[in-house]
Write a protein that binds this DNA or RNA. Sequence first.
DNA 1: GTTATCACTTTAAACGATTAAAGCAAATGA
DNA 2: TCATTTGCTTTAATCGTTTAAAGTGATAAC
Lengths: 337, 337
Amino acid sequence: MKKIGLKDIAEHVGVSIALVSYVLNGQAEIKQVSKENTQKIKAAAQLLNYRPNQIAKSLKMLKTYTIGLVVADINYRFSTGITRAIEAEAKKANYTVLFGSSNENADSFAELINVLINRQVDGLILVPVEDSQSQITMLQKAEIPFVLIDRNFPEIPTNHIALNNYRAAYTATEYLIKQGHKQIAFFNYITTMFHLHERNRGYLEALRDHHINFNQHWLQQINSNNRIGDIEQGIDTLFNLKEPCDAMFFATDTLAINGLKYLNKIKAKVPQDISVLSFDESEAFELFYCPVTHLRQPVEAMGQAAVNTLLELINHNKISKQLSLESDLIIGQSCRE
Amino acid sequence: MKKIGLKDIAEHVGVSIALVSYVLNGQAEIKQVSKENTQKIKAAAQLLNYRPNQIAKSLKMLKTYTIGLVVADINYRFSTGITRAIEAEAKKANYTVLFGSSNENADSFAELINVLINRQVDGLILVPVEDSQSQITMLQKAEIPFVLIDRNFPEIPTNHIALNNYRAAYTATEYLIKQGHKQIAFFNYITTMFHLHERNRGYLEALRDHHINFNQHWLQQINSNNRIGDIEQGIDTLFNLKEPCDAMFFATDTLAINGLKYLNKIKAKVPQDISVLSFDESEAFELFYCPVTHLRQPVEAMGQAAVNTLLELINHNKISKQLSLESDLIIGQSCRE
DNA sequence: GTTATCACTTTAAACGATTAAAGCAAATGA
DNA sequence: TCATTTGCTTTAATCGTTTAAAGTGATAAC
């Protein structure tokens, strides 16, 4: 295919390239291009089906109107939600989103960032993964505009938008307590990620504030490499305590799904035998025989805030924004009253 | 941030830009660059943390090593699966994927294609939406390499990779018949899309081949704008037939999920009261009280085939490939024996 | 009749890379 | 000794845009 450029239009009409550029960029008026040429040029562009070469444009303008997005795992419900929200918000400002999934792997994360930077994205929105601190500091040294979402490293000052994980976990735990539960278990991953630690903290402080003596066994620490095994073993343990647990709170949707599968398997009835509450949404929850009570993250607001913060940074407004969003507790029927 | 370019390295070392380019592109040997300069240039690139500007490179090379992907809806399980597969396969060939979601809207679809072309992608992988024929013929006229996946327009000859929808539906229906079902309903969208018509055809021909007299009411045509209402009404109709249905086959996972939700609501037991079978996978199926028997699309194979076909096209091998893949029937417990 | 102004249009230098082709010493060959 | 080859390096054009700055011919002002 012969690619049509400004030159082709110029030749076709019989004017210089500059005129064509002016007209097609809406500068006909200001540059005082004659009506006649304006007319002809527009017609020729249409006729020849001209498509501006963004690559050339970007090179000249030193700006690509592209933002890079790296999510942790495209299979998470959260990731698709946030991606949609970010794309929609970016489009409003005429930005395109270049997208990648790190699959929770620090090396992939680093590589993706590299690819995106080489493609000259104007800025980055990142869901950082475990052990990716060095990447973050690298970006700061390189003065590349970026915003972290969902997670952050408290030891590194950054712009970030995330859920108030502490409060969400606290609220959910408190809810369970108020429903009359006395033995509340919490499943979480073994991790160094701050946002998950915050969930632990919320759980523990809610127990403490309500004068419930914490039992070590309640906090089930799951190794992500042995998720299913650990969860099943954890559930067995919790049911076999002298005082068996009456509620299980899962720190993520994947943990909850695996937990519910096992509860199905051992024929434990929710909520009769055990109450269940989960972080995050999953379409799977709706099909469970009783809708699962869960915490919903405000992905729309998160995506919008991330894009708008990033655009401010890109436009050289040196801002510092740490936004903490609240979650909604969606009451289903998985918690006994 | 001061962006480091070849020029900066050249000045730092005290050589010309050309030498730097040769060295950093692994052409040191063939261009006979002295060991000393090779050394110095590499060191300087490292020291200054040089990052090649892909935009400039692409402009010069007239090739971006990028492929554009447009899926129908990022919320579909199918979309995330295929995206992952395509990204992985593309990476092997050192291509990046630029990604967008049309949300089943023809205008968005057209706009996304435009954006991608303007960004000079080397080729496109598309899940076409209803009424997007004109876009496809436009691409053909413009001689832009592209491959359709999941869906295609039989009236337009294209390279495409899709499921053998006819056979999949036939196989599933036959399975239900062999399980002893006599009144089998089929839920499908009202659409002009060929791939969904093929599912109808598979269903109908399986009935015919097994000498089952088809009842008009069995084929429930769902308006996608009133999905939930239509499904609920359809299910009511099917249960109130003189000879009520004993099996429901859903043409997509979204249809199935909504159907199952309603079955839950009216307390119809699967598979005791009704057998259920669905196209596509959904993590929701695993949490349903009995795992849902469903057809699994080979997304991995599909993604790989799409990328490899596209790369052949890009490399000027004018090929014509129509690949029809077979699905797996995953037996759960949602069909009575 | 010269000069200034006006209404347009063109020229040409970027942007950051690639890469033929040309350049230039020193070494080799006749 | 002069020409050629060798080994290495630089020059400069190019990709498709944008955009100051300069150019041009006609009309107006004095």
